[in-house]
């Protein structure tokens, strides 16, 4: 049986048995898949650095239609995330967070071209040395939006009227931004620069955005709340990222 060929991004690997690895891939053709990479551990592994997290690869997957676990055949490195990780501790840890975020949001066995293109664009922008904090907010915003979880920025979530320009008032009960007559806000109020940043996020490529420091801080907790409500758990890498930052500050 010929393998399924696909472009893919390596999201995570874990040890399997004595010599193998279990690999979670975000593929262009099949969405998120799990595959066994036989003999992937040890110095003579034919995969070499291709299975490091966020490597962009070209894979051959073997397995029956509808299988939940493929066998990884060839896996050619297209672009390594090693240089991006080499940009420093923050970038390296944030890239791990990107991988876990993508793993959490991607659907298994379901091709989602938008998610795949988003992932590649964000990782490449990180490699080019774009501001990693801005990229984190960018990836969060887009994954939430593609999952239908990002509140509308221009319509009131309660009455549907256009929201006037200015700050955005979040309302917990309606899970959205509300106008003055439907308010007041029960959640955070996103000031004008934050709103402006979001408008930019949803209109441009990740390599083009820069976050004003205030937006980075406000949106981090705003996004984390949306993510946590959706996933109903904390992301491990997010905690590690903050533990390291606290210890080295």
């Amino acid at each position: 049986m010929p393998p399924i060929a696909s472009d893919a991004l390596v999201l995570k690997t874990s040890k399997l048995g004595e010599t193998s690895k279990l690999v979670i891939l975000l593929t262009r053709e099949r969405g998120k898949v799990r595959a066994v990479a036989k003999g992937a551990r040890g110095t003579r592994s034919r995969y070499q650095s291709a299975l490091e997290p966020l490597s962009e690869v070209r894979v051959g997957l073997y397995g029956r239609q509808g299988t939940e676990l493929f066998r990884l055949g060839q896996c050619d490195l297209v672009r390594s995330a090693f240089p991006a990780g080499g940009r420093g501790l923050e970038t390296s840890l944030t890239l791990s967070y990107f991988a876990e975020l993508l793993d959490a949001f991607a659907q298994e066995g379901e091709a989602e071209d938008a998610v795949y293109r988003l992932a590649i664009a964000v990782v490449r922008a990180a490699e080019e040395g774009r501001d990693i904090v801005a990229l984190a907010r960018y990836l969060e915003a887009w994954l939430l939006r593609l999952a239908g979880l990002y509140p509308q920025l221009d319509r009131c979530a309660a009455c549907g009227n256009a929201l006037p320009s200015g700050p955005l008032a979040y309302h917990h009960v309606t899970h959205g931004f509300v106008c003055a007559s439907c308010g007041p806000a029960s959640g955070p109020v996103l000031q004008k620069p934050v709103r402006e940043f979001l408008r930019e996020v949803f209109a441009t490529a990740p390599s083009a955005v820069t976050t004003p420091p205030e937006a980075a801080r406000v949106l981090e907790s705003f996004h984390q709340n949306l993510i946590r409500r959706h996933l109903e758990r904390d992301l491990r890498s997010y905690r590690v990222m903050h533990d390291v930052a606290r210890g080295t500050a």
Binding site: K12, S14, P53, L93, S96, Y97, A99, E100, R236, S237, R239, V240, M241, D243, V244, G247
Partner: peptide, 11 residues
């Protein structure tokens, strides 16, 4: 080793 994806941090 630090392994954010496995939840292994400084502690």
């Amino acid at each position: 080793a630090l392994s954010p994806l496995q939840g292994i941090g400084p502690d």
